[in-house]
Design a protein around this nucleic acid. Structure first.
Lengths: 179, 179
DNA sequence: TCCACCATGTAACTGGTTACATGATTAC
DNA sequence: GTAATCATGTAACCAGTTACATGGTGGA
């Protein structure tokens, strides 16, 4: 029963997150990836359509024919919602913070209908703490290695520091806004 | 003559960028990817070692046996340096800015020995202008769509705005530091 | 002695990119 | 009527991940 389930990829999660409130056509989904920051996570026709197939065979979404019978859009199923919720409930891990916060923030974007305020705040708190720790680590590293780095390397490193700091600011802002 | 050249991937460029001043063993290269922010761009053994092979067959790096004869490290070739320089000289494109600035900043980090001050400044200027334009576009979009977005979506979008703004700040800082 | 880490790889799998192909509909 | 965009895919190619396999070396 378990094994009939193919592994769910990040792209899969993003797609079901995207259509959780309103069904979309495959084309609209693709366009959304193309036009927005989601483009970072793929979105070529050769990835979207296979992903939609995967999701259907996993019963996470279903195809629904619209009025005319020519077009059809994709709608999340109950199972899909359950799985999406489980994914959203996973708190940020150290490794994810290191790998880049974009996906972690995107997950947050999808939380609104499914997770309650307490859960969202907890997510932000954990993210904030992990970011804080990671930043301290980066700063310590920079302090030690700075001298041996070329100027452009130093500057690039500083970009990382600034970037994580701005995410930290965002965490505070988001916590305040929610609370 | 041209066609004996396999396409050079981003990972390839990062590797030659990494070893441009000091040769490293394959293991060290892998470790660097694992331990630093380079991890975003891959770095599993199954990607590094094939990449090193590719680079050797393209004559962009060469294997050099060290003292004992047991270990060996990889050193960039003249051709490699020439290619790296060409890559670094490519100015930021709109599309790259949209796709995420990390790679663009990483490129900057590799510039120090190969590009002169004028070139580095030009790179930063172009980046700054493109970021500025993109930010304005994002802000306009946000202003229009905000009302129809769930709160968590709004906040996530704001993270993007903050993030690009911090990169913009960094551009100014870097320009000032160089100039 | 044994564990951790240095060091180098291979193989199966899988998913993504690029490019192509097709046709309907909408707007000018 | 024709160009752009909506809409849905396919196929070849390729690169990366995961997991495995092997052996040396340095220190507790």
């Amino acid at each position: 029963m378990k094994d009939s389930f193919k592994k769910v990829t990040t792209l899969d999660y993003i797609i079901i997150g995207l259509i959780q409130d309103k069904p979309l056509t495959g084309y609209k989904i693709r366009k959304t990836f193309e036009d927005t920051a989601l483009g970072n996570f793929g979105g070529s026709p050769g990835s979207i359509y296979p992903a939609l197939k995967r999701l259907i065979s996993n019963h996470l979404i279903e195809k629904e024919t619209i009025s005319s019978g020519l077009k059809s859009h994709f709608k999340i199923t109950k199972t899909g919602i359950r799985l999406l919720k489980l994914w959203l409930e996973e708190l940020p891990e150290d490794e994810e913070v290191r790998k880049g916060i974009d996906l972690l923030v995107l997950k947050f974007a999808f939380m609104d209908p499914l997770l309650n305020k307490k859960q969202k705040l907890e997510y932000l708190f954990v993210l904030k703490i992990k970011l804080d720790n990671y930043l301290k680590e980066l700063e310590a590293y920079f302090h030690e290695e700075k001298a041996s780095m070329p100027l452009s390397g130093q500057l690039a490193f500083q970009h990382g520091l600034l970037s994580y700091n701005s995410t930290l600011d965002w965490c505070r802002l988001a916590i305040k806004t929610l609370g």
